[in-house]
């Protein structure tokens, strides 16, 4: 019945997730709460931005995740297309809604932050525009998964869409940059110290980023397991119907 990849790996994944998931969830919760509490209660205000600088602990990690989740989907899509590894395709499917929420958080906190700082909720700044485009890519990707009944066809099509979409997302980024110069500051966490935000802000920021990453890992484990359960249920129901 099928190759070893089709059956053994989801089972192995489920077994691993049973062990890993509780720990990652606890670690994610602790790190996230610690980072946000540290950022919210125990950091000074910026001399120019006042207390709004505290939004950075949500805005930057969410923005980073928005991009990295898509990147993770790109990698798992490639793995699916090359190795036909089912868990890989399902992990991409499981990650997409998390990515779109991260994009949404980045956009919303950005708008709330931009209102007092730049005097506007929204501007066609390159980074804002790029994130809005990324949001549209996520929407299309999720919609395509929902629209197709056959799970393997859906996995193939969404994987190709993800790869083509990645190329166009990068192209759009450059196009948008060319189209309008921005309001954003340069890199906030580059190694070049002069550009960096000060240490009092950056240490809790790193904790928050770690928290977001851990939360994402926990969610992907959980959601991928859900998808595997769902697919197994579907397969069993189909077999029952056949007799």
């Amino acid at each position: 019945m099928g190759s070893i990849w089709e059956y053994a790996n989801p089972v192995k994944f489920i077994r691993t997730s049973e062990i890993v998931l509780p720990w990652v969830s606890i670690l994610a919760t602790v790190t996230l709460i610690a980072g946000l509490v540290w950022g919210f209660f125990f950091t000074p205000d910026d001399y120019r931005q006042g207390s709004t600088v505290k939004i950075i602990y949500l805005h930057v990690p969410a923005a980073l995740m928005a991009i990295n989740v898509w990147f993770m989907m790109l990698v798992t899509s490639l793995v699916w297309l090359i190795r036909r590894h089912h868990v890989s395709a399902l992990a991409a499917k499981a990650a997409a809604p998390v990515g779109i929420i991260m994009t949404l958080i980045a956009l919303v906190t950005g708008a709330i932050w931009g209102q007092p700082m730049w005097g506007t909720w929204w501007a066609w700044d390159p980074r804002l525009t790029s994130f809005l485009i990324l949001f549209l890519f996520y929407l299309g990707y999720i919609a395509l998964w929902e629209a197709i009944d056959n799970p393997d066809t859906a996995a193939d099509l969404t994987a190709v869409l993800c790869i083509v979409g990645s190329v166009f997302a990068v192209l759009s980024r450059y196009a948008v940059n060319f189209w309008n110069q921005g309001l954003h500051q340069g890199a906030s966490l580059s190694l070049d110290k002069k550009e960096n935000v000060a240490d009092v802000f950056s240490t809790p920021l790193y904790v928050c980023i770690a928290g977001f990453v851990l939360l994402f890992i926990a969610l992907v484990f959980l959601r991928t397991r859900t998808e595997i359960h769902k697919r197994r249920t579907k397969a069993l129901l189909a077999r029952e119907r056949l007799g």
Binding site: L36, S51, I105, V108, T109, I112, Q115
Partner: peptide, 11 residues
């Protein structure tokens, strides 16, 4: 205050 709190609340 409102700005920061609303950003945290929404997120």
């Amino acid at each position: 205050g409102d700005t920061v709190l609303s950003a945290y609340a929404v997120s």
